[in-house]
Design a protein around this nucleic acid. Structure first.
Lengths: 155, 155
DNA sequence: CACCTGATTGCATAATCATGCGTCATGGAG
DNA sequence: CTCCATGACGCATGATTATGCAATCAGGTG
């Protein structure tokens, strides 16, 4: 790594995520304080970068601003269909360093992908990948990417 | 009222809400420009106050920061939320013979996982997920105090 | 081992956002 | 009509966040 510290980047970010999800942290300086009280040293600069990488959001509330984890806004009666879908095909979800791996019984991946595709989610996957990393047994059995981007993300 | 301007406060805020919901505005200055191009004059100060009153959030994505309407992610259908999450974090999605691999920028996986968890999707994978990997809900290495006051230690 | 490449971080500083204070209008009371 | 209270703003400035640069360190490579 670079500067030797007590905790690695991943650890620090994990901690930030945890704090932000539990407490009302309104500034990076506050976050820095919590990290410090946990033995993790970092400057505001680093935290700013972590926040960017984690994709956190700073939101306004009745009591000022606070950082939050995207997706906090719980939906009323959400995930019904998606839940059913994953419930049927997903064996487990593993969080990797650079992604998420949803495991399914052999062969079922196609079905899941198809389901997500029909749900209008598949187009998120585009050929815009930069580096190839995912290991962990992740090999494609000759299955080309689901589809092209028929949808425009942002930009 | 106050300073007589072309538009009332309500109208201005309505416009801001509308712009933010549709475009990728990353700074109050940009918002100001947008309003101006619509004939509504306002300073950054005013916009800052509007944003607070509207309870908007500034969120980080793979393409920079942007203001968003909280709850904009919660859509009529459960899929919309997941779509939003993936839209923000997923670089690519590859279908493997035994699962799906969602690639994200380094570190963002945790955020995605957290988001899915918050959405009530985590348990879809059942106890398998917990057994196989790190699960955020519980505690990591040794987090002492995530229990703090929800008060306002603001400024 | 010397050298090059990429990652990660601190520092200093630029870019943004938030807010105290004073002013301008509006509306109601006296 | 005059005076006072309230709300909305702009300005200037303090508070926060973002980022260019350079140093440091882990890994390959020749």
């Amino acid at each position: 790594m670079s500067r030797s510290n007590g905790a690695s980047k991943a650890k620090r970010q994990q901690a930030i995520l945890s704090f932000v999800a539990q407490e009302r942290l309104g500034s990076q300086e506050e976050i820095r304080g919590r990290l410090a009280s946990m033995g993790i040293a970092a400057t505001q600069s680093t935290i700013s970068r972590d926040i960017e990488e984690l994709g956190l959001a700073r939101m306004h509330g009745h009591d000022g601003t606070r950082y939050v984890v995207p997706g906090d806004g719980r939906a009323p009666q959400p995930v019904a269909m998606l839940r059913r879908l994953l419930d049927e095909f997903a064996l487990s979800m593993v969080r990797a360093d650079q992604g998420l791996i949803v495991r399914t019984p052999p062969g079922a991946a196609a079905a899941l992908a198809e389901g997500l595709d029909r749900a209008g989610l598949a187009d998120v996957a585009g050929p815009n990948a930069r580096r190839n990393t995912i290991h962990k047994r992740g090999r494609e059995g000759g299955n080309p990417p689901p589809r092209e981007q028929a949808h425009t993300p942002k930009k």
